[in-house]
Design a protein around this nucleic acid. Sequence first.
DNA 1: GGTTTGAGTTTACGCATGTAAACATGAATT
DNA 2: AATTCATGTTTACATGCGTAAACTCAAACC
Lengths: 123, 123
Amino acid sequence: MAVSEAEAVVMEVLWRAAPRSAEEILAEVGPAQGWQEGTVKSLLNRLLKKKAVKAEKDGRRYLYTPLLSRGKYVSQESKGLLDRLFDGRVAPLVAHFSEQRKLTKKDIAELRKLLKELDDEQA
Amino acid sequence: MAVSEAEAVVMEVLWRAAPRSAEEILAEVGPAQGWQEGTVKSLLNRLLKKKAVKAEKDGRRYLYTPLLSRGKYVSQESKGLLDRLFDGRVAPLVAHFSEQRKLTKKDIAELRKLLKELDDEQA
DNA sequence: GGTTTGAGTTTACGCATGTAAACATGAATT
DNA sequence: AATTCATGTTTACATGCGTAAACTCAAACC
């Protein structure tokens, strides 16, 4: 089963720093998302059920740690999108953004650098 | 409301050629997806409700035409992913794929070409 | 020791989705 | 005219998601 969008918000907190208690997670994410305590608790339980995080006892409470890495999650999500919309490849996506004039100068510079690096390690 | 994944499968058919009848859509998509007639009908109705397609009478039946363009849909979906995972920019996504060794030679060649084109039109 | 409190666990509830059957209605056929 | 057929419309139903309240239970306090 896939990590949902709301669940991913909790994961992001844990990816930034772990292990964390439910309380800490709520403190970091509650205000911005407008979430109550119960919401975070539910999300954590679903993440446990999905094996995306683990919990270890720390006195009366639990500390949560990601089992799913951010890299893996990002790859899954990205691959899903590319497969559905761009025949599974990256270049068509970039082309789409280029056509829409959605590439920033920074993007372009970074892409150039990236390609050069690929060149270098190739050589 | 957003076009869901199953709905997008129907949209893809209409993006390839429109207008089309429900029957034609079923013929094209049913076998591959393992969908019954009722499924396609439901999806078409939801797409109508979402204003993603329109229907015009053609004798006893309707012919469906996209109102949402593929480009717009692709942009929405892509932007969603980039915003959630890559700070809204394209380059980090490409970098991610590069790190994962998921860039094909074809990708790299196309990206090079793309950048060169941007260069040229710039000049 | 009884009570409050903090934390996790269970249950809830409305909405979207995937999937489709049931129903309605007008056209075609006998 | 009655029946069948094609097509669209309505209803259904399980599952997941977003959101959270209710419940439990052990630890802390009075």
